[in-house]
């Protein structure tokens, strides 16, 4: 065992570059929604309870988040698959690094939403027998995702076990 403090290294691969675009589109939707909520709230709440700068502050925060979060997400999200295990890193404010041995993998799904379809992206989702969350590799190019899912399924079957 090495002498220094041992840490996890980040997984090897990044997501497809279009993931960044996909997240920007998603955040844009959230900004539109957020602005609508702020405007409606301003309209409903009596003026004397609302300092004039407050709506602008909220809208500003909304926009800043929409600009900052996608690149942040893209920097955090990474994945790696070996003969033994799947290793993913997701999140932005809270980072989650998950590791599951292939022998414990139950299902491998490829997931595609409407927006993902338009951009030719797909998410690979690996579940184990625990309900504490799946390992997600969001936003690979569809062919890459399908190929990865096929490989994972084959490898999981080869490593045996039924996942419990």
């Amino acid at each position: 065992m090495p002498a220094g403090p041992v840490r996890l290294r980040p997984p090897a691969h990044r997501l497809d570059r279009r993931a960044l675009l996909r997240w920007y589109v998603g955040e844009a939707g959230i900004v539109v929604l957020g602005v609508a909520i702020v405007l409606i709230a301003v309209w409903l709440v009596p003026d004397r309870f609302v300092p004039p700068w407050l709506p602008w502050l909220l809208i500003g925060l909304d926009v800043v988040q929409a600009l900052v979060v996608p690149p942040w997400r893209y920097r955090v999200h990474r994945w790696e698959v070996t003969d033994e295990a799947v290793y993913t890193q997701t999140g932005w404010w809270t980072r989650e690094r998950r590791l599951a041995p292939l022998s414990r993998v139950q299902t491998v799904d490829v997931d595609q939403g409407v927006l993902d379809r338009a951009l030719g992206l797909a998410e690979v989702r690996v579940t184990t027998a625990s309900a504490a969350g799946a390992l997600r590799i969001p936003y690979l190019a569809l062919p890459a995702a399908e190929q990865l899912a096929a490989e994972l399924t084959r490898a999981a079957r080869a490593s045996g076990g039924d996942g419990t």
Partner: peptide, 24 residues
């Protein structure tokens, strides 16, 4: 903790860092 609990699984994904890095 995870390294000791399931030997072998985690090794490929770890690295030695910090002041002792040079001793690798």
């Amino acid at each position: 903790l995870a390294l000791r609990a399931q030997p072998g699984l985690l090794e490929p994904f770890t690295q030695v860092t910090g002041p002792e890095e040079g001793r690798g």
